[in-house]
Protein backbone atom coordinates (compact mmCIF):
# COMPACT_ATOMS: atom_id res chain seq x y z
CA UNK A 1 0.00 0.00 0.00
CA UNK A 2 1.51 3.30 -1.08
CA UNK A 3 -0.28 6.39 0.11
CA UNK A 4 -0.03 9.88 -1.32
CA UNK A 5 1.90 12.45 0.68
CA UNK A 6 -1.25 14.27 1.60
CA UNK A 7 -2.88 11.10 2.86
CA UNK A 8 0.16 10.35 5.00
CA UNK A 9 0.01 13.80 6.50
CA UNK A 10 -3.63 13.40 7.39
CA UNK A 11 -2.83 10.08 9.07
CA UNK A 12 -0.05 11.73 11.07
CA UNK A 13 -2.27 14.58 12.17
CA UNK A 14 -4.98 12.13 13.18
CA UNK A 15 -2.52 9.95 15.09
CA UNK A 16 -1.14 12.93 17.02
CA UNK A 17 -4.65 14.17 17.79
CA UNK A 18 -5.86 10.78 18.99
CA UNK A 19 -2.76 9.22 20.57
CA UNK A 20 -0.98 12.23 21.99
CA UNK A 21 -3.64 14.85 22.52
CA UNK A 22 -6.38 12.55 23.68
CA UNK A 23 -8.98 13.60 21.06
CA UNK A 24 -11.34 11.02 19.59
CA UNK A 25 -11.31 12.36 16.06
CA UNK A 26 -9.74 14.92 13.78
CA UNK A 27 -11.58 17.96 12.51
CA UNK A 28 -10.62 18.44 8.82
CA UNK A 29 -11.21 22.19 9.19
CA UNK A 30 -8.36 22.42 11.72
CA UNK A 31 -6.14 20.28 9.55
CA UNK A 32 -6.07 22.66 6.61
CA UNK A 33 -7.21 20.07 4.06
CA UNK A 34 -10.89 20.65 3.30
CA UNK A 35 -13.16 17.66 3.80
CA UNK A 36 -13.71 17.21 0.09
CA UNK A 37 -10.01 16.57 -0.60
CA UNK A 38 -9.47 13.34 -2.58
CA UNK A 39 -6.91 12.24 0.03
CA UNK A 40 -9.78 11.38 2.43
CA UNK A 41 -11.28 9.20 -0.21
CA UNK A 42 -7.95 7.46 -0.64
CA UNK A 43 -7.79 6.76 3.10
CA UNK A 44 -11.36 5.54 3.39
CA UNK A 45 -10.75 3.45 0.26
CA UNK A 46 -7.92 1.64 2.08
CA UNK A 47 -10.23 1.31 5.10
CA UNK A 48 -7.79 3.19 7.27
CA UNK A 49 -10.20 5.89 8.45
CA UNK A 50 -13.88 6.58 8.38
CA UNK A 51 -15.67 9.88 8.22
CA UNK A 52 -18.72 10.46 10.39
CA UNK A 53 -20.53 13.81 10.51
CA UNK A 54 -17.63 15.42 8.71
CA UNK A 55 -15.09 14.24 11.38
CA UNK A 56 -12.22 11.81 10.72
CA UNK A 57 -11.94 8.64 12.89
CA UNK A 58 -9.35 5.82 12.90
CA UNK A 59 -10.22 2.34 11.89
CA UNK A 60 -8.04 -0.27 13.68
CA UNK A 61 -5.82 -0.81 10.60
CA UNK A 62 -5.40 2.94 10.27
CA UNK A 63 -4.15 3.32 13.80
CA UNK A 64 -1.22 0.98 13.09
CA UNK A 65 -0.50 2.65 9.75
CA UNK A 66 -0.60 6.07 11.41
CA UNK A 67 1.92 4.94 14.01
CA UNK A 68 4.36 3.82 11.33
CA UNK A 69 3.87 7.06 9.42
CA UNK A 70 4.65 9.16 12.46
CA UNK A 71 7.64 6.93 13.15
CA UNK A 72 9.00 7.64 9.66
CA UNK A 73 8.43 11.35 10.12
CA UNK A 74 10.30 11.52 13.41
CA UNK A 75 13.12 9.29 12.18
CA UNK A 76 13.50 11.69 9.26
CA UNK A 77 13.74 14.57 11.73
CA UNK A 78 16.46 12.77 13.67
CA UNK A 79 18.34 12.03 10.48
CA UNK A 80 18.23 15.68 9.48
CA UNK A 81 19.55 16.81 12.81
CA UNK A 82 22.01 14.09 13.82
CA UNK A 83 23.57 13.25 10.49
CA UNK A 84 22.91 16.10 8.09
CA UNK A 85 23.11 18.73 10.80
CA UNK A 86 20.01 20.57 9.56
CA UNK A 87 18.30 22.24 12.49
CA UNK A 88 15.24 24.37 13.14
CA UNK A 89 12.70 25.09 10.41
CA UNK A 90 15.06 24.04 7.63
CA UNK A 91 15.38 20.62 9.24
CA UNK A 92 11.65 20.25 9.84
CA UNK A 93 10.92 21.27 6.27
CA UNK A 94 13.30 18.76 4.76
CA UNK A 95 12.14 16.06 7.14
CA UNK A 96 8.57 16.56 5.90
CA UNK A 97 9.68 15.88 2.37
CA UNK A 98 12.10 13.13 3.28
CA UNK A 99 9.74 11.01 5.39
CA UNK A 100 7.81 9.85 2.36
CA UNK A 101 10.89 8.04 1.04
CA UNK A 102 11.35 5.98 4.18
CA UNK A 103 9.28 2.98 3.24
CA UNK A 104 10.03 -0.53 2.04
CA UNK A 105 12.69 -1.23 4.63
CA UNK A 106 14.57 2.09 4.33
CA UNK A 107 13.15 3.11 7.70
CA UNK A 108 14.70 0.02 9.31
CA UNK A 109 18.11 0.85 7.89
CA UNK A 110 17.89 4.47 9.01
CA UNK A 111 16.65 3.44 12.43
CA UNK A 112 19.56 1.01 12.85
CA UNK A 113 22.07 3.58 11.65
CA UNK A 114 20.73 6.07 14.17
CA UNK A 115 20.96 3.31 16.79
CA UNK A 116 17.19 3.04 17.36
CA UNK A 117 16.46 6.51 18.73
CA UNK A 118 13.58 6.82 21.17
CA UNK A 119 12.67 10.48 20.73
CA UNK A 120 12.53 13.04 17.94
CA UNK A 121 14.47 16.32 18.15
CA UNK A 122 11.37 17.96 19.65
CA UNK A 123 11.39 15.44 22.46
CA UNK A 124 8.33 13.49 21.30
CA UNK A 125 8.52 9.69 21.38
CA UNK A 126 9.30 7.77 18.22
CA UNK A 127 7.06 4.69 18.12
CA UNK A 128 9.43 1.70 18.13
CA UNK A 129 9.54 -0.61 15.10
CA UNK A 130 10.34 -4.28 14.94
CA UNK A 131 14.02 -3.53 14.48
CA UNK A 132 14.04 -1.67 17.81
CA UNK A 133 12.44 -4.60 19.61
CA UNK A 134 14.93 -7.03 18.03
CA UNK A 135 17.89 -4.89 19.04
CA UNK A 136 16.57 -4.66 22.56
CA UNK A 137 16.01 -8.41 22.73
CA UNK A 138 19.58 -9.12 21.60
CA UNK A 139 21.01 -6.55 23.99
CA UNK A 140 22.85 -5.12 21.03
CA UNK A 141 24.08 -1.69 22.03
CA UNK A 142 25.26 -1.02 18.52
CA UNK A 143 27.75 1.73 18.13
CA UNK A 144 28.04 3.96 21.18
CA UNK A 145 30.35 6.70 22.35
CA UNK A 146 33.23 5.57 24.55
CA UNK A 147 31.61 7.48 27.41
CA UNK A 148 28.82 4.85 27.46
CA UNK A 149 31.24 2.00 28.13
CA UNK A 150 31.73 0.59 31.60
CA UNK A 151 35.19 0.40 33.13
CA UNK A 152 36.93 -2.75 31.96
CA UNK A 153 34.72 -3.14 28.92
CA UNK A 154 36.46 -3.92 25.64
CA UNK A 155 35.30 -3.10 22.15
CA UNK A 156 36.28 -2.20 18.66
CA UNK A 157 36.64 1.37 17.48
CA UNK A 158 33.95 2.06 14.89
CA UNK A 159 34.62 5.64 13.95
CA UNK A 160 35.72 9.02 15.26
CA UNK A 161 33.19 11.78 14.96
CA UNK A 162 34.65 15.24 15.19
CA UNK A 163 34.75 18.36 13.11
CA UNK A 164 38.04 19.42 14.62
CA UNK A 165 40.95 18.19 12.51
CA UNK A 166 43.43 18.56 15.34
CA UNK A 167 41.37 16.43 17.68
CA UNK A 168 41.11 13.82 14.97
CA UNK A 169 44.85 13.74 14.43
CA UNK A 170 45.58 13.59 18.12
CA UNK A 171 43.28 10.65 18.56
CA UNK A 172 44.77 8.92 15.53
CA UNK A 173 48.27 9.47 16.90
CA UNK A 174 47.18 7.67 20.06
CA UNK A 175 46.24 4.68 17.93
CA UNK A 176 42.52 5.43 17.99
CA UNK A 177 41.76 4.11 14.52
CA UNK A 178 38.68 2.29 13.27
CA UNK A 179 39.16 -1.44 13.63
CA UNK A 180 41.55 -1.27 16.60
CA UNK A 181 40.60 -2.90 19.88
CA UNK A 182 40.09 -0.53 22.77
CA UNK A 183 39.68 -1.18 26.49
CA UNK A 184 38.14 1.43 28.74
CA UNK A 185 40.22 1.13 31.89
CA UNK A 186 38.52 3.81 33.95
CA UNK A 187 35.90 6.47 33.40
CA UNK A 188 36.20 8.76 36.42
CA UNK A 189 37.64 11.35 37.08
CA UNK A 190 39.07 11.10 33.56
CA UNK A 191 38.69 8.48 30.87
CA UNK A 192 41.61 6.09 30.63
CA UNK A 193 41.73 3.72 27.70
CA UNK A 194 44.20 1.18 26.43
CA UNK A 195 45.01 0.58 22.79
CA UNK A 196 47.69 -2.02 22.17
CA UNK A 197 50.09 -1.71 25.08
CA UNK A 198 49.70 2.00 25.69
CA UNK A 199 47.40 3.77 28.07
CA UNK A 200 46.04 7.24 27.53
CA UNK A 201 44.00 9.61 29.62
CA UNK A 202 41.50 11.90 27.93
CA UNK A 203 38.66 14.14 29.08
CA UNK A 204 35.02 13.56 28.30
CA UNK A 205 35.10 16.02 25.41
CA UNK A 206 37.47 13.74 23.54
CA UNK A 207 35.93 10.52 24.82
CA UNK A 208 32.53 11.35 23.41
CA UNK A 209 34.00 11.66 19.92
CA UNK A 210 35.19 8.05 19.89
CA UNK A 211 32.51 5.59 18.81
CA UNK A 212 32.93 1.98 19.70
CA UNK A 213 31.23 -1.29 19.00
CA UNK A 214 31.00 -3.96 21.66
Amino acid sequence: MKLSEKAEEILEALWIAVEEEGARFLDPERMGFPADDPAYKELTGHTLVEIRQGMVYFRPEGREEGKMTIRRHRLAERLMMDVLNLRGDAGDDKACQFEHLLNEGVDIKICTMLNHPATCPHGKPIPPGECCADARAQGDLGVVALTEFKSGQEGEIAYIQTKDDKKMQKLMAMGVLPGNRIVLVQSYPSYIFRVGFSEFAIDSNLAKEIFVRK
Partner: peptide
Protein backbone atom coordinates in the same frame (compact mmCIF):
# COMPACT_ATOMS: atom_id res chain seq x y z
CA UNK B 1 38.15 28.05 24.02
CA UNK B 2 38.03 25.51 26.80
CA UNK B 3 41.16 23.39 26.50
CA UNK B 4 41.15 19.65 25.95
CA UNK B 5 43.04 17.10 27.96
CA UNK B 6 44.86 14.09 26.61
CA UNK B 7 47.98 12.47 27.89
CA UNK B 8 49.89 9.26 27.44
CA UNK B 9 50.34 7.32 30.67
Amino acid sequence: EAPMFYMEL
